[in-house]
Amino acid sequence: MNTYADSESRRDARDRPAIPAYGPIDALLGFVMFYVLVDRATPTFVDVIPTVLPSVSPSLVRLGLALALWFVFVVTSIDQIRRQLAALGVITHDAITPSSRRRGTPTETEALLYLVLALVGGTVAAWTFDRGIETAVSLIPVVVTIDVTAFVPEDFAVMVVFFLSFGVASYALDRLLIGGLRATFAE
């Protein structure tokens, strides 16, 4: 094979429009995590909010949480649609610049880095999932009632590690899978 021709075809592939845009897998995983958190926190909210605001019924608290889920879903969906349209060049989006539309597929080194980040971040997130979610839910009464004596710094640190590792893993997985789709479309 001619090395010059191979490098030319790679450069041409990297100069093609980058379709699909990065972000949908990261957004989907983020929404699923938000749903899990709201699902687990709903009983706590239903118990705590009426003690602070007695005129608020538990059914109204549940309705508010359901509306929050739908709001986040709609806003996330609209943002992802705008990102994909911006990648096509139909509209503009702050996260999609003309130069990033032409970026193409990730290099092998970038793909390997994203794979390692996805595996390490996913493993740490899996190890800390239960404790991280439990801590997030247990912080609701602490924040609502301003009871700092119930705050446990070690649990808070685990929760921060969980959300950071989950964020890194979902970002890396998005880059890895969307980059793979881009490479498939580029051929």
Rank of each mutant, 00 (worst) to 15 (best):
M1Q: 08
M1A: 13
N2R: 15
N2W: 05
D6A: 11
R10L: 00
R11D: 03
R14A: 02
R14T: 01
D15L: 11
D15H: 11
A18D: 04
A18G: 09
I19E: 04
I19W: 08
A21C: 04
I25R: 08
A27Q: 04
L29E: 05
V32S: 10
Y35C: 07
Y35N: 11
L37Y: 02
L37D: 00
V38F: 06
V38K: 00
D39I: 04
R40T: 07
R40N: 10
T42G: 03
V46W: 02
I49T: 07
I49N: 01
P50F: 02
T51Y: 06
V52Y: 15
V56L: 05
S57T: 08
S59C: 05
L60V: 12
R62I: 07
L63Q: 03
G64M: 15
G64R: 06
L65Y: 11
L67R: 02
A68G: 05
V72F: 14
V72L: 15
V72K: 14
F73E: 10
V74D: 06
T76D: 13
S77R: 05
S77F: 12
L85W: 06
A87L: 11
L88A: 10
G89H: 04
V90E: 08
I91K: 09
T92L: 07
T92V: 07
D94T: 10
A95L: 10
R102L: 15
R102A: 15
G104Q: 06
G104V: 06
T105N: 10
T107D: 11
T107P: 05
T109F: 11
T109M: 04
E110T: 12
E110I: 08
A111M: 09
A111C: 07
L113G: 08
L113N: 11
L113Q: 13
Y114T: 03
Y114F: 14
Y114G: 02
L115G: 13
V116T: 14
L117Q: 09
A118K: 06
G121F: 04
G121T: 07
G122D: 05
T123V: 03
V124P: 00
V124K: 02
W127I: 12
D130H: 12
T135F: 00
V137M: 02
V137Q: 01
S138L: 00
L139K: 00
I146T: 13
T149C: 05
A150Q: 05
A150T: 06
A150P: 01
F156E: 08
A157F: 15
A157L: 15
M159G: 00
V161F: 07
F162W: 00
F163V: 06
F163M: 01
L164S: 12
F166T: 00
G167T: 12
A169S: 15
S170K: 15
A172Y: 03
A172P: 07
D174E: 04
R175S: 13
R175N: 09
R175C: 05
L176N: 00
L177S: 05
G179T: 01
G180V: 01
G180C: 05
R182Q: 13
R182W: 09
A183V: 01
E187T: 11
